[in-house]
Lab assay of single mutants.
Amino acid sequence: MQIFVKGLTGKTTTLEVEPSDTIENVKAKIQDKTGLPPDQQRLIFAGKQLEDGRTLSDYNIQKESTLHIVWR
């Protein structure tokens, strides 16, 4: 499925993911596209910070959802 990651600059990155992907895995995909290391990424969805060990489905993140990224 496709999801979007929007940064503070307003730039949006598209990712191809599975609902079973962990947040850690998603951060690795973001690094592949942007070069930003996972330890500098904070992902937010529906006002919650996403924890590395959880999956996208744990947070009810579905296709075409938009996550927000904040740099540490």
Rank of each mutant, 00 (worst) to 15 (best):
Asp32Phe: 11
Gly10Val: 09
Thr66Arg: 05
Arg54Trp: 11
Val70Tyr: 13
Asp21Asn: 07
Glu18Ser: 14
Lys48Glu: 12
Ile69Ser: 03
Thr14Gln: 08
Glu18Met: 14
Val5Ala: 04
Leu36Ser: 04
Gly7His: 12
Ser57Met: 10
Ile61Asp: 00
Thr66Lys: 04
Thr12Arg: 10
Lys29Ile: 06
Tyr59Gln: 03
Thr14Ser: 10
Ile23His: 01
Leu43Gly: 00
Lys63Leu: 06
Pro19Ala: 08
Gln31Val: 04
Glu51Ile: 08
Gly35Met: 04
Ala28Tyr: 14
Thr14Asp: 04
Gln40Arg: 12
Ile61Ser: 00
Asp39Trp: 13
Lys48Ala: 10
Ser57Cys: 04
Leu43Gln: 00
Phe4Leu: 06
Val17Arg: 00
Lys33Asp: 05
Lys63Gly: 13
Lys33Phe: 11
Ala46Asp: 12
Asp21Val: 03
Thr22Ala: 04
Ile44Tyr: 15
Leu56Val: 08
Phe45Asn: 02
Gln2Lys: 13
Glu18Tyr: 15
Thr55Asn: 05
Lys33Ile: 13
Leu50His: 00
Phe45Thr: 02
Leu36Thr: 07
Lys11Asn: 12
Glu51Gly: 04
Ser65Phe: 08
Thr22Asp: 03
Val17Thr: 03
Ile3Tyr: 01
Leu67Asn: 01
Leu36His: 07
Val17Glu: 00
Trp71Cys: 09
Pro37Asp: 08
Ile69Arg: 02
Leu50Trp: 01
Asp39Val: 09
Leu50Arg: 00
Gln41Trp: 15
Tyr59Thr: 01
Pro19Ser: 08
Asp52Arg: 04
Gln49Met: 13
Gly35Lys: 05
Arg42Ser: 11
Thr14Met: 12
Leu67Arg: 00
Gln2Val: 14
Gln49Thr: 14
Ile69Glu: 03
Gln62Lys: 11
Lys27Gly: 01
Val26Asn: 00
Leu15Thr: 01
Pro38Asn: 07
Thr55Leu: 08
Glu16Leu: 13
Val26Ile: 11
Ala46Cys: 07
Gly10Trp: 07
Thr22Met: 07
Gly35Pro: 02
Glu18Asn: 13
Tyr59Ile: 02
Val26Pro: 00
Lys63Ile: 06
Pro37Val: 07
His68Val: 11
Leu56Pro: 01
Leu50Tyr: 01
Lys27Met: 05
Arg72His: 14
Pro38His: 10
Asp39Ala: 12
Lys11Met: 13
Trp71Tyr: 12
Ile69Thr: 03
Lys27Ile: 04
Leu50Met: 06
Gln2Asp: 05
Lys27Phe: 03
Asp58Cys: 03
Gly47Thr: 04
Asn60Lys: 08
Pro19His: 06
Asp58Ile: 02
Thr14His: 05
Gln40Val: 09
Gln49Lys: 09
Asp32Tyr: 12
Thr12Leu: 14
Lys29Asn: 04
Pro37Gln: 09
Arg42Asp: 11
Glu16Cys: 10
Gln49Arg: 10
Thr66Trp: 09
Val26Cys: 03
Val17Pro: 00
Leu36Arg: 07
Asp21Glu: 10
Lys6Cys: 11
Asp32Gly: 10
Lys6Leu: 10
Ile61Glu: 00
Asn25Lys: 14
Val26Lys: 00
Thr13Tyr: 15
Lys29Asp: 02
Val26Tyr: 00
Lys6Ala: 07
Asp21Trp: 11
Val17Ala: 04
Gln41Met: 15
Arg42Gly: 06
Arg72Thr: 15
Ser20Leu: 09
Leu43Val: 05
Leu56Met: 05
Lys63Cys: 06
Thr9Phe: 15
Gly10Cys: 08
Thr12Asp: 06
Leu8His: 13
Trp71Ala: 12
Gly7Lys: 04
Gly53Phe: 10
Thr14Phe: 07
Ser20Tyr: 10
Gln49Phe: 13
Ile3Gly: 01
Arg42Glu: 12
Thr13Glu: 12
Arg72Phe: 14
Asn25Ile: 13
Asp21Gln: 04
Ala46Thr: 05
Ala28Ile: 13
Asp32Leu: 13
Val5Tyr: 03
Gln41Asn: 05
Asn25Met: 15
Thr22Lys: 08
Leu56Phe: 02
Asp32Ser: 13
Phe4Asn: 05
Glu64Phe: 14
Asp52Tyr: 05
Ile44Arg: 06
Ser57Tyr: 09
Ile69Phe: 08
Gln40Asp: 07
Arg54Tyr: 13
Pro19Cys: 05
Ile3Trp: 01
Gln41Pro: 03
Val5Thr: 03
Leu67Met: 05
Gly47Leu: 04
Gly10Tyr: 05
Arg72Pro: 12
Glu51Pro: 02
Glu18Ala: 12
Asp21Ala: 06
Thr34Met: 13
Val70Gly: 06
Gln2Asn: 10
Met1Ser: 02
Ile61His: 00
Gln2Leu: 15
Lys29Val: 04
Tyr59His: 03
Phe45Val: 03
Pro19Phe: 07
Asp58Pro: 00
Thr12Asn: 06
Asn60Pro: 03
Leu8Glu: 08
Lys6Arg: 13
Lys48Cys: 06
Thr55Gln: 07
Gly53Gln: 10
His68Lys: 08
Thr66Asp: 03
Phe45Lys: 02
Thr66Asn: 04
Glu16His: 11
Gly10Pro: 06
Ile23Asn: 01
Asp58His: 10
Val70Leu: 12
Ala28Asp: 06
Leu56Lys: 00
Leu43Tyr: 02
Leu67Gln: 00
Phe4Gly: 02
Asp32Trp: 12
Gly35Ser: 04
Trp71Pro: 12
Asp21Leu: 05
Pro38Glu: 06
Val70Arg: 09
Lys27Asp: 00
Asp39Tyr: 11
Leu50Ala: 01
Glu16Asp: 12
Thr12Gly: 06
Asp32Ile: 13
Ile30Leu: 10
Asn60Arg: 06
Arg72Met: 14
Thr55Lys: 10
Gly53Pro: 06
Lys63Asn: 15
Ile23Val: 09
Arg42Trp: 10
Leu36Lys: 05
Glu24Gln: 11
Pro38Lys: 15
Phe45Ile: 03
Ala46Glu: 15
Gln40Glu: 10
Gly53His: 14
Glu16Tyr: 13
Leu36Phe: 10
Leu8Trp: 14
Pro38Met: 15
Lys48Leu: 12
Phe4Pro: 01
Gln62Asn: 09
Gln31Asn: 07
Arg54Glu: 04
Gln62Cys: 05
His68Arg: 09
Val17Trp: 02
Thr34Leu: 14
Asp52Trp: 03
Asn25Glu: 14
Asn60Glu: 06
Glu51Leu: 09
Arg42Cys: 12
Val70Asn: 07
Thr55Ala: 06
Leu36Glu: 04
Gly7Ser: 12
Gly7Ile: 10
Lys48Met: 13
Leu50Gly: 01
Gln49Ala: 12
Arg54Ala: 08
Gly7Pro: 06
Asp21Gly: 02
Lys11Gly: 13
Asp52Met: 05
Lys63Asp: 14
Thr34Tyr: 11
Ile30Arg: 01
Val5Gly: 02
Arg42Tyr: 13
Gln40Cys: 10
Tyr59Pro: 00
Trp71Asp: 08
Asp52Ile: 05
Ile61Val: 09
Arg72Cys: 10
Asp58Phe: 13
Thr13Asn: 06
Gln49Asp: 14
Pro19Ile: 09
Asp52Pro: 07
Ser65Ala: 10
Gln41Val: 15
Gly7Val: 09
Asp39Gly: 12
Val70Ile: 13
Trp71Arg: 12
Ile61Leu: 04
Ser57Gln: 12
Glu24Ile: 10
Val5Pro: 01
Leu43His: 01
Glu18Pro: 03
Leu67Glu: 00
Pro37Cys: 07
Trp71Phe: 11
Pro38Phe: 12
Thr66Phe: 07
Glu64Asn: 14
Thr55Ser: 07
Gln62Asp: 08
Lys48Thr: 12
Asn60Ser: 08
Lys48Gly: 05
Gly53Cys: 06
Thr55His: 05
Glu18Gln: 09
Gln2Ser: 09
Gly47Pro: 01
Val5Ser: 02
Ile23Phe: 02
Lys27Gln: 02
Asn60Thr: 05
Thr12Met: 14
Lys29Thr: 03
Asn60Cys: 05
Ala28Arg: 15
Leu56Cys: 03
Leu8Arg: 10
Glu64Thr: 06
Leu43Lys: 00
